[in-house]
Design a binder for these strands. Structure first.
Length: 1071
RNA sequence: GCUCAAGUGGCGGAAUUGGUAGACGCGCUGGAUUCAAAAUCCAGUUUUUUCGGAAGUGCGGGUUCGAUUCCCGCCUUGAGUACCA
């Protein structure tokens, strides 16, 4: 019987579908394993051979795990909302749901042909209302949550309202908008409902705000930063402009630190982790406030501590008493801004602990001058609480909770006269800057503000007004693109105003320059020209002094940007200190003197969540008095309405503005016609839709219980499947999908909805499969094509030829080329051959239609079979690497399958022997089991295909047809080539599918050898081999080797200096 | 610029607790089978050579009895990111 892949593959695909062979059970005695591919978007173009690579790898792993006794969850579905379907709808008027459905059908057919073991009963589609009901539900949960930095997690908004009611917002330690106004509990209660909602919106994890967005007029939508490439839209390459719009945003910044920390406990590729780390962009430094000079400065009368005194303090901090240590251990573990310092100096007093941010001093009682201390501290604006040693040692938790209470509900301190003076001073302008190098603060010789900075217009002097305004006008004109392309030109303008250096009191110039970005940090920098190259260039260009604050460093040519080993000089109390010490001491002093504090900054920006698109999830939101209201989750899903046209409305509203049934009847709880908006209880619904990443940020949880109508997934199922054990997909999702999904998972974890805060334990990025393009060479200005070997010295123009017209030996089918519909111009062309054939040139390029190098898997499956395709995709090279596809290579794996098949046949009929296997046969089998098992565990699929080939070659040479060998061999091969394995398995007499057959057990005893073919090296170079028994001692080996004639010949009479013998491995003779 | 990854035959690639470099496959060469072709099978295929050997894993050093593997410096290619204070 001939191996007929077409028949066999169809038969087993049907069998699997009819018997639901790969349906996963939510209850099982077996350990669970969850393998998932990244959510595919069903595009209309169909698959090319690059697409299934990751699916094949994950399928092999899933099948392997089933053989290993795991209950495997391996689902598949579609991320079916998205731009291409909508663009197509705009062009053709076809409903995107319809084209999406058609695309999915094609996609599914292609997948089924390759023999994947997906559990299709769990399929989800993001565009199904039953699915996006839960997307909307999560949105509501985010809206109803705020981030409490003290507990370091998301909490229900009601806990925040409670605090507002009792204490106002001054003690709240939350992640929120920047320009928050403070209010007391009484003020809160006096707010109108709308005012209260406005305030809460500034704290919610998803919120409405006027954001400067990347507006793409051509697409009629807003793009996220990662959807823009080189200043134009990633999709379509349209220009993008900045524009202010009211948008929904997600407060992902609240999770910046946890997203960073979480990377340490997941097994993801380092480059992927690096790019997330990069994207989050944590930088540690200090916020420093510079006052703008107003002419009436006087020197500060701060008490400065000498370096010696500071060292003494440090000593004290290291030698704490037992009670002191106990309390400190509790205090320092407190998270968030309520950061305590120990043994700190306030005025002339030394206090035990102080929280500068909350103006709270904690002391042990029993100090002699308690009354005087309290009075002084209160005058300085500090509250004081005291505990005895015993209180701390007996119940430190109680003490800490009292401290917490004191932080949250501070006693009002009577303001002293001195404070009034300070308040008066505050009327002058201040510039906040963030710096990662507070140690270089004495090197500041000017400040630079972004041209857009709000203070610019206020501080610019009349004399400089014209110049500054001209500069601002010029920068505004420059497009983002220009500014990006041109980083070399130095430009700026002097405002005429001066700032006061907070330490030295010196006046320093304030400039504006477009190298400072308005939307990063505070939009202002303290320029340290000697330590920062951009500041240096700016100073040089405008002749601003460049003070040197580094010991023994030459800065005449360039700034000194190294930190390590640098010693600070000319810097008052920082002089003589190394980078790290200076940095700490600088922050310490700033905090003490009250014009700065240590701070961690993140580059990660809140994510815009609105899209002006039709084909996406509608928001469960309506507007009452201009304030957004969530629709109760009972009434979800809010189904996407029908529209006439998928374009924005004529007055510039998003496409949902075209819907006629798009208003919320708050009394009857349903979507009604817009005509009813006149009614008092009917409100307009949100017109934006959600972005592409909404539906894909939690789908992996939904697969655990995909048809549950009451919950995202039942608690039992979530607890059973927990997280993805193996996630495979492309690296292009590094900072999009994979960051947002981690954010949502952490949020759902905080709310107790999911049991783990990282959704994928291990992740692999599969490499891209590239195309091998073929080129023909046309002599310039003629219609003559010259074969590759003859082009040298001639002026030729390379032209892409369709790869299907070229054979494995790079020979072009000239007639087919001439008759190809795309080559009408070359119908009568002349071809100059070499040795009777036309040879093409080859080059590796991205697989793309325009390069005529796309290979369709359907054709491969038709000609060679799915098993060959699966084997060959794996055989190409390591999964993670990019590698070129060359169809000719597939004949190797194809003939392997034929050889495998032949082992089970004697001529035309199936025949296996029940005789006992020989030693050699067992050795081949167990060698193979060992290697294949290791390879799969290490995701080294390419090498296991080689191993199969070696095994089949060896068993063929041994003429092996023993059941004892061939039965386990079928199981070994089955994850890779499941169709042929199932067929052989059933021929071997089995009635059940091979998919859950136990993986063969490796037994080391079959690999034990009695002799070793030793490599004999001279000075490390192998010269010949010598077969010796393995039980020889070192001395016996040496004797045998040294007396060998080839050794004597090699040595040419010299006496070896040394003989290295590693028994069972190698012999090396030195000399 | 910065960060990361990778450089091994004509091609895809294999080999790392440091121990026989080039497994396996493609392609190529020769042979068998065939009227012929396809398919199949057998042998060879890093370079060089005076046929004894010798050299060789991007380049230059180092550690070691021994380095594709470890360390230092450089070159090239690819990916990500970019006026981030």
């Amino acid at each position: 019987m001939q191996y007929n892949h077409l028949e066999i593959e169809k038969k087993w695909q049907k069998f699997w579908a009819e018997n639901q062979t790969f349906k996963a059970s939510n209850e099982s005695e077996k350990p669970k394993y969850y393998v998932l591919d990244m959510f595919p978007y069903p595009s209309g173009a169909g698959l090319h051979v690059g697409h299934p690579l990751g699916y094949i790898a994950s399928d092999i792993y899933a099948r392997y795990k089933r053989h290993k006794g795991f209950n495997v969850l391996h689902p598949q579905g579609y991320d079916s909302f998205g731009l291409p379907a909508e663009q197509y709808a705009i062009q053709t008027g076809q409903h995107p749901a319809k084209t999406t459905e058609a695309n999915i059908t094609t996609y599914r057919k292609q997948l089924d042909q390759i023999g994947f073991s997906f559990d299709w009963s769990r399929e989800v589609r993001t565009s199904n209302p039953e699915y996006y009901k839960w997307t909307q539900w999560i949105f509501i949960q985010l809206f109803n949550s705020w981030y409490n930095k003290d507990s370091d997690k998301a909490e229900d908004i009601s806990t925040l309202e409670k605090i507002f009611k009792t204490a106002g917002n001054t003690t709240v330690n939350a992640v929120c908008d920047e320009d928050i106004k403070s209010f007391s509990a009484d003020e809160w209660k006096a707010f109108s409902k709308t005012e209260q909602e406005e305030v809460l919106l500034q704290y919610r994890l998803t919120f409405l705000s006027d954001t400067e967005v990347n507006w793409c007029p051509a697409l009629g939508t807003v793009l996220a930063n990662d959807e823009i490439v080189n200043g134009v839209s990633e999709r379509g390459g349209h220009p993008v402009v900045r524009k202010k719009m009211t948008q929904w945003s997600m407060r992902i910044s609240a999770y910046a630190q946890r997203l960073l920390d979480g990377l340490e406990k997941i097994d993801w590729p380092q480059p992927l982790k690096d790019s997330q780390t990069n994207w989050i962009g944590r930088s540690q430094g200090a916020m420093v406030t510079f006052k703008v000079a107003n002419g009436s400065e006087k020197n500060s009368s701060e008490v400065k501590l000498s370096y010696k005194e500071l060292e003494d303090l440090k000593e004290l901090r290291l030698n704490l008493s037992k009670a002191e240590t106990t309390l400190w251990d509790e205090l320092k573990n407190k998270k968030g801004a309520a950061k305590f310092r120990k043994k700190y100096t306030i005025g002339t007093f030394r206090v035990d602990y102080v929280c500068l941010a909350k103006h709270l001093i904690v002391e042990f009682s029993g100090k002699e001058d308690e009354v005087a201390r309290t009075e002084f501290f209160n005058n300085e604006g500090f509250n004081v609480i005291r505990f005895t040693n015993e209180e701390v040692l007996q119940n430190v938790v109680k003490v800490v909770s009292e401290i917490n209470a004191a932080i949250q509900f501070p006693k009002k301190i009577e303001k002293t006269v001195e404070k009034e003076v300070v308040l008066k001073d505050e009327k002058s302008y201040k510039i906040d800057v963030f710096t990662t190098r507070p140690d270089t603060i004495f090197g500041v010789s000017f400040m630079t503000l972004a041209p857009e900075h709000e203070l610019v217009s206020k501080i610019t002097t009349d004399a400089q007004k014209a110049e500054v305004e001209a500069y601002i006008k010029a920068t505004a004109k420059r497009s983002e693109r220009d500014r990006m392309a041109d980083v070399k030109t130095i430009s700026g303008a002097f405002t005429g105003a001066y700032a006061i250096h907070p330490f030295s009191g010196d006046k320093i110039q304030i400039w504006i320059g477009d190298y400072v970005l308005a939307n990063y940090g505070t939009g202002a920098v303290m320029a340290v020209p000697c330590g920062d190259q951009r500041d240096y260039d700016f100073a040089k260009h405008f002749n601003i002094p460049i003070p040197n604050i580094f010991e023994g460093v030459d800065i005449s040519e360039a700034a000194h940007t190294d930190k390590d080993g640098t010693v600070i000089a000319n810097s008052d109390f920082l002089s003589g200190l190394k980078y790290k010490k200076a940095l700490k001491l600088a922050i310490f002093e700033m905090e003490k003197r009250g014009f700065g504090y240590g701070k961690i900054n993140y580059r990660l920006r809140d994510a815009v969540f609105s899209r002006q698109r039709y084909w996406g999830e509608p928001f469960p939101v309506y507007y009452k008095d201009g304030m957004p209201q969530m629709i109760d989750e009972k009434y979800l899903p809010i189904v996407l309405p029908e529209v006439e046209k998928y374009l924005p409305t004529e007055d510039g509203k998003p496409p949902l503005g075209n819907a006629t049934e798009w208003a919320w009847d708050s009394r009857n709880k349903k979507v009604v016609s817009n005509e009813k908006l006149k009614n008092k209880t009917v409100y307009p619904l949100e017109l934006n839709t959600m972005p592409g990443w909404a539906g894909s940020s939690y789908y992996f949880n939904r697969y655990m219980d995909p048809s549950n109508e009451n919950e995202i997934a039942s608690k039992e199922n979530l607890d059973y499947w927990k997280e993805i054990d193996l996630y495979i997909g492309g690296s292009e999702h590094a900072t999009g999908h994979l960051l947002y999904a981690r954010f949502w998972q952490k949020f759902l974890f905080d709310k107790g909805i999911v049991p783990v805060d990282e959704f994928a334990k291990k992740l692999i990025n599969q490499g891209m499969i590239l195309g091998t393009s073929a080129f023909v060479y046309r002599e310039e200005g003629t219609n003559t094509f010259i074969s590759k070997g003859l082009v040298e010295g001639k002026k030729v123009q390379p032209i892409h030829a369709d790869v299907s017209l070229v054979n494995a030996s790079d020979e072009l089918d000239v007639e087919a080329f001439k008759n190809h519909p795309l080559n009408q111009d070359y119908k009568n062309a002349e071809f100059i051959l070499e040795n009777g054939v036309y040879k093409v040139g080859r080059e590796v390029e991205k697989m793309s239609k325009s390069k005529y190098n796309v290979v369709n898997p359907d054709d491969i499956v038709e000609q060679y079979g799915a098993d060959s395709l699966r084997l060959f995709e794996m055989f190409l090279g390591p999964l993670e690497q990019a590698k070129p596809w060359k169809t000719s290579g597939i004949s190797g794996v194809s003939s392997f399958l034929k050889k495998l098949w032949k082992l089970y046949f004697n001529g035309d009929h199936f025949e296996v022997s029940d005789a006992e296997a020989t030693k050699d046969e067992l050795k081949v089998l167990h060698k193979t089991i060992k290697k294949v098992e290791e390879d799969i565990e290490n995701f080294s699929f390419n090498t296991s295909v080689s191993t199969f080939m070696i095994a089949v070659n060896e068993l063929t040479a041994l003429k092996c047809n023993k059941r004892a060998i061939l039965e386990p061999l079928a199981i070994l091969v089955s994850p890779y080539a499941p169709h042929i394995a199932e067929e052989l398995w059933s021929l071997l007499g089995h009635k059940e599918s091979i998919s859950t057959a136990d993986f063969p057990k490796f037994e080391a005893k079959h690999l034990v050898e009695s002799a070793k073919n030793y490599p004999i090296s001279f000075n490390g170079k192998m010269r010949f081999t010598l077969e010796l028994p393995l039980d020889l001692s070192k001395d016996e080996i040496e004797a045998a080797v040294m007396s060998h004639e080839k050794t004597i010949a090699q040595l040419e009479g010299r006496t070896p200096k040394k003989v290295i013998i590693v028994p069972g491995k190698i012999v090396n003779i030195v000399g």
